[in-house]
C-alpha cells in the first residue's frame, strides 16, 4: 500500500471528528470517537504484528503498541470516561497502578524498539549523518511543552482534590513526553528511508507520537483557560489523527513485509 492513500486516514479521521464535534459535540460523541480511533489503531498494529513471526524484532514493537491502544479502548468501553481512582476501595488503587503502568510502559517500550530498529539493522550511521540542529530544537521544545503540561495537569488535579488522579495522570503525561522525545529519532529514521517503502511506517509513528503530546497539551490548556466544547472538539480531532497515524503506520509496515514476501514467492 502506498503512503499517499494512508495519509488520508488521519486527515479524514480528524476532519470527521472535528465536523461531528461542531454538529453534535459532547461527552458521548467524544467517548465513542476515542474508542473507535484507539480500536482502529490497535487493529493496525495487530495487522503489522500478524505479518511477522513471533521471534521477529519488529513483532515485539507492534505487539506493545497494539496493547497500548487496545487497553485504553477497552477501559473506555467498560468505564466510560471514568477511572478506578474515583473508587476508594483498595483494589481500585491496584487496578489504577497496573493499568497506567502497563499502557504507558507498553507505549514507551514500543517506541524505543522502533527507534532501536535502525541501529540493530546496522544502519545507525544513516540517521546520525542527518542534520542535528532541527532535531535538538524540536527535542527541547517537546521537553518544555511536556514539563509545562505535566505541571499544569498535576496542579489542576490537586486543586480539584484528586491526588491519586494527579499522580497517575502525571505518570501518563510523563510517558507521553518520553514518547514525544522519540519523535525526533523516529523522524530521522523516516528521513533515512526516504524514497523506500519503509519510510511511511516510521513517518506515521513519528506523527502519532507528536499527536499524543499535542492532545495532552491542548486538554490541559483548555482546562486551565476554561475553554468550552469547541476546544474539546479540536483536542479530540488531534487524538483521532494520532490514533489513525498508528493505524497507517501498521498498515504501511504490513504492506512492506507483504511486498518482500510476494515478489520472492513469484521467483520460487
Amino acid at each position: 500500500m502506498r503512503p499517499q492513500p494512508l495519509l488520508a486516514l488521519p486527515l479524514l479521521g480528524a476532519a470527521l471528528v472535528g465536523l461531528l464535534s461542531t454538529v453534535a459535540g459532547g461527552p458521548r460523541l467524544w467517548l465513542a470517537t476515542a474508542i473507535a480511533a484507539q480500536a482502529l489503531a490497535a487493529g493496525g498494529c495487530l495487522a503489522a504484528a500478524a505479518a511477522l513471526g513471533r521471534r521477529d524484532f519488529m513483532f515485539k514493537a507492534w505487539a506493545l503498541y497494539a496493547l497500548s491502544h487496545a487497553l485504553p479502548a477497552a477501559r473506555r468501553l467498560v468505564l466510560g470516561t471514568g477511572f478506578w481512582w474515583q473508587d476508594e476501595r483498595p483494589l481500585a488503587a491496584v487496578l489504577d497502578a497496573a493499568y497506567i503502568l502497563v499502557v504507558n510502559g507498553a507505549r514507551v517500550a514500543g517506541s524505543l524498539l522502533f527507534v532501536m530498529a535502525l541501529a540493530r539493522a546496522g544502519l545507525g550511521a544513516a540517521a546520525a549523518a542527518r542534520s542535528r540542529g532541527g532535531g535538538i530544537l524540536v527535542t527541547l521544545g517537546g521537553l518544555g511543552l511536556g514539563v509545562l503540561t505535566l505541571l499544569a495537569y498535576v496542579q489542576s488535579a490537586l486543586a480539584a482534590g484528586t491526588p491519586r488522579g494527579a499522580f497517575w495522570g502525571g505518570v501518563a503525561i510523563a510517558a507521553d513526553t518520553a514518547c514525544f522525545l522519540l519523535v525526533v529519532p523516529l523522524a530521522r529514521i523516516a528521513g533515512a528511508f526516504r524514497g523506500g517503502v519503509l519510510e511511511a511506517p516510521w513517518a506515521f509513528l513519528a506523527a502519532a507520537n507528536l499527536g499524543w503530546l499535542v492532545y495532552d497539551a491542548s486538554r490541559t490548556a483548555a482546562r486551565l483557560a476554561g475553554w468550552g466544547d469547541g476546544a474539546r472538539g479540536a483536542s479530540e480531532a488531534v487524538l483521532a489523527a494520532a490514533c489513525l497515524c498508528a493505524l497507517a503506520a501498521g498498515l504501511a509496515h504490513r504492506a512492506a513485509v507483504a511486498h518482500a514476501k510476494a515478489s520472492a514467492a513469484v521467483l520460487a
Binding site: 513471526g53 524484532f57 540493530r120 546496522g122 518482500a260 514476501k261 515478489s263 520472492a264 521467483l267 520460487a268
Partner: peptide, 22 residues
C-alpha cells in the same frame, strides 16, 4: 540478512536473500 531480518522479519529476509543471490 541480519538487517533485512530486523526490518522485515525472518521469512521475507530469507526470500529476499535467496532472490538476490540468484
Amino acid at each position: 540478512r541480519p538487517m533485512l531480518r530486523t526490518l522485515l522479519g525472518d521469512a521475507p529476509a530469507d526470500h529476499l536473500i535467496r532472490e538476490l543471490t540468484e
